[in-house]
Nucleic acid binder design. Structure first.
Lengths: 228, 228
DNA sequence: GGCATAGTTTTCGTATACGATTTCGTACCT
DNA sequence: AGGTACGAAATCGTATACGAAAACTATGCC
């Protein structure tokens, strides 16, 4: 099937300056979870691994810092950015707003073909619920929204969405993810969202639904942590 | 009076690494308009001006690129980012959404004291209308919203606001700014916004009002350009 | 006169080198 | 034993240097 992978900002895929390559390489490792939060990123070591000098690596790290994937302390070094509950809240809240707007803006441009594709992805997600497969589920979830955002008329907003996703990717398999029962609700909300788009609901309704979709995950986390 | 200056992200004011200093220096020149859009930023030249080597300057430029204030082309160099009508639309639309959210989130935390301060700023803006003073007006406009956002509970959103403002700062005295009559409406919308906050209007109402406040400026520009 | 082309200049990209700062370990003193 | 001071190691920050790519210029050809 189509690959809806998102790579946030950078268009150049693999080739490019060494700084770009280093950026892509380190980012991939962070997003994939090879480098976990707290992992110490030593410039010289990364440079050696890649066969580059430290200069382009440093540039890459600083760029990742700007995106919030890495924290950098002067004369000390870089570590993969963790995400504490507060940061999580900020990120999810912001993402809720951004995704809401992105969905509402995209909605009028989404055609029947897109809807069908989105439904197919959602069906796969439903499938993931039967066999417990959180990793695949998360991936498909992004695919689903990527279909909706494919025609987003504002690239700035789309970029913010991707940044948020990347930020959350750090906490793959962390305590935040997979609140029990939330995944099932999520799939239903997807279908609900598709119906709203299909029937040409007004922008405000769609925006609110998309917002709540994200906010609900945050709420689920919050009630979970306060209860235990 | 209080200085509501915003500096987007960086906390370190003047001192810091040379890279930070270079970042601050170049950014200031761009935002202040000393470097106009299209201005060619030659690394070696800036480095010489600051008395640094090119390495930290390069890092600073790349950081500015990440913020959208500078465009960078491989093996060619950096130029101060212009902002064409499309970019303007994207930025304003995004800012409309972000400011709307920021205002709604901040509203419950805004007290009578803040309202009074905001009204004072707005009065000064009204004053600027009599004597034609666009530069001061723009500055005060940011001060006004800075008062509202002072208690914004989500720093990520606040950061996005500042980024948008910086982006727009590039086009100081450009064709986009100061659509006739828009400024006067803006002041009234401010007062309207304050009343909504004062009377504890619901979040959705406040958000929509704040959104429209920004969107109206965009609309004014759009109708102006299509009419002539 | 206009266009293609080769040579020159400018400017970027990155490697290397070294000084500065922090961190960590060890010895010493109380 | 605990804490402090000193020294060594690790790591970052930046200067310098050089190769590579693009932009510019001048020359020759049509």
């Amino acid at each position: 099937m189509t690959d809806f992978s998102w790579s946030s900002g950078d268009v150049t895929v693999a080739t490019g300056s060494k700084s770009e390559q280093a950026y892509a390489a380190v980012k991939a490792k962070i997003v994939d979870g090879a480098y976990s939060p707290g992992y110490r990123l030593v410039l010289a070591k990364i440079a050696e691994d890649l066969g580059f000098s430290v200069v382009p690596v440093r540039e890459a790290i600083r760029r990742l810092e700007a995106e919030g994937l890495v924290t950098f302390e002067r004369n000390v070094g870089a570590t993969v950015a963790g995400i504490d509950p507060t940061e999580y809240l900020y990120t999810m809240q912001t993402l809720s707003i951004i995704e809401g707007a992105a969905t509402a803006l995209s909605a009028p441009l989404i055609g029947p073909v897109d809807i069908t594709r989105a439904r197919a992805v959602n069906a796969e997600m439903r499938d993931c619920l039967e066999h417990f497969d959180p990793v695949r589920f998360t991936r498909l979830n992004q695919d689903f929204h990527s279909v909706l955002f494919e025609h987003c008329p504002n690239p700035h907003i789309l970029d913010l969405v991707h940044r948020g996703w990347n930020r959350l990717a750090s906490l793959r398999s962390s305590t935040f993810r997979f609140v029990p029962g939330r995944a099932r609700d999520s799939v239903e909300e997807h279908e609900n969202l598709l119906q709203l788009i299909e029937t040409g609901a007004d922008a405000d309704t769609i925006e609110k639904a998309a917002r709540r979709h994200r906010a609900a995950t945050l709420d689920a986390y919050l009630t979970q942590t306060t209860h235990q």
